[in-house]
């Protein structure tokens, strides 16, 4: 599996998808590597689902090209379909069928022989912890269980790339972390996973790299850590046991530390805005020399939410809608 690292899984070039006069995707260039968990992050209507549907051969691009493991999604759609698994956003299950019947159906749709299908069905059910509920109609399952049935169906043919559109939308906290664990397991097996999300914590926790997409365009690309760092603006807050005698002097001393952009001292606390990542020892030393007694030091990175606002000019969601 490590031999695959660095190889291209998906290549998106100058992708445009227009509906009438509006462009849902408006000139997108993106490369996704094999073996990574890649996130498309953006608000509803940003063009994420459209992009995902083009990658999974469900929509045709207006212009531009997308190749999946070297196969064009339009000209060579069937080859792409054989290589990918797809878990859509909705609860895309047939509530009248049992979990086993779902898996049997998809085993046939991916043309697995019965001899190959039987152990794979067992394994997929075990992976998503549904082995004891295989013969119950899926309609009686909770949202989280339905999602796990969908993931099992998407894994049956041993795809090289799994696409998940908003995998934890509407799930409770426990089901959500369960789905995240399944996705981490898949990454460990060397699978490439592409996730659409408008849920920042999910993107932050799961994804090796993120593309922030807004109004059909790529706004930023990088690992969650890179993106947050790239914003600069780490904040160090120093709390003191009691106010120093010469706050102005302390302020000037801290301002002189390399990498510090701005300092404000207010009674028993000092707040330092950093221009780049800076060691804490120089800051601590200055406080000591100014006669301050240290109580606590807080170092905070900007959140992904702040990254998102920085690149798109607005919040990912107006309100946190669950």
């Amino acid at each position: 599996m490590t031999g695959m690292a660095g190889a291209v899984a998906i290549d998106i070039s100058k992708l445009v998808k227009r509906y009438g006069s509006t462009a849902a995707v408006d000139g997108l260039d993106l490369t996704i590597q094999q073996g990574e968990v890649f996130g498309l992050l953006g608000p509803n209507g940003a063009g994420k689902t459209t992009t995902l549907k083009i990658m999974t051969t469900l929509l045709r691009p207006t212009s531009g090209t997308v190749t999946v493991l070297g196969h064009d999604v339009v000209a060579d759609a069937d080859a792409v379909r054989r290589l990918i698994g797809y878990v859509p956003q909705e609860r895309a299950v047939d509530r009248l069928l049992t979990a086993r019947e779902h898996l049997e159906l998809f085993a046939d749709l991916y043309h697995l022989s019965p001899a190959v299908a039987a152990p794979r069905i067992q394994e997929a059910l075990r992976l998503v912890d549904l082995a004891d509920r295989v013969n119950d109609p899926v309609g009686k399952f909770s949202g989280g269980m339905k999602k796990r049935v969908e993931i099992a169906c998407g894994l049956l043919h041993d795809p090289k790339i799994l696409f998940l559109d908003e995998p934890t939308l509407g799930l409770d906290v426990q089901s959500r972390s369960q789905v995240w664990n399944h996705i981490r397991q898949l990454k460990q097996r060397g699978m490439t996973v592409v996730i659409n999300s408008n849920y920042l914590e999910e993107a932050d926790q799961l994804c090796d790299r993120l593309a922030i997409i807004d109004r059909g365009r790529l706004r930023a690309l990088g690992s969650p850590r890179e993106l947050k760092r790239g914003l600069g603006g780490d904040i160090v807050t120093v709390s003191l046991e009691k106010a120093v005698a010469q706050p102005q002097q302390l302020r000037q001393a801290l301002q002189a530390v390399a990498g510090v952009r701005e300092v404000s001292v207010d009674g028993t606390s000092a707040r330092l805005a950093l221009a780049r990542e800076t060691g804490l020892s120089a800051i601590v030393e200055q406080v000591r020399q100014a006669g301050g007694e240290l109580q606590a030091v807080h170092y905070t990175h900007p959140t992904l939410e702040e990254v998102f606002i920085h690149y798109t000019g607005h919040k990912i969601r107006e309100e946190a809608i669950q």
Binding site: R81, F106, H111
Partner: peptide
Amino acid sequence: FDRETGFLDRLLASPI
């Protein structure tokens, strides 16, 4: 109904 639940997309994403 398959289209409304998204199940149709699942079918269409398979190599049939």
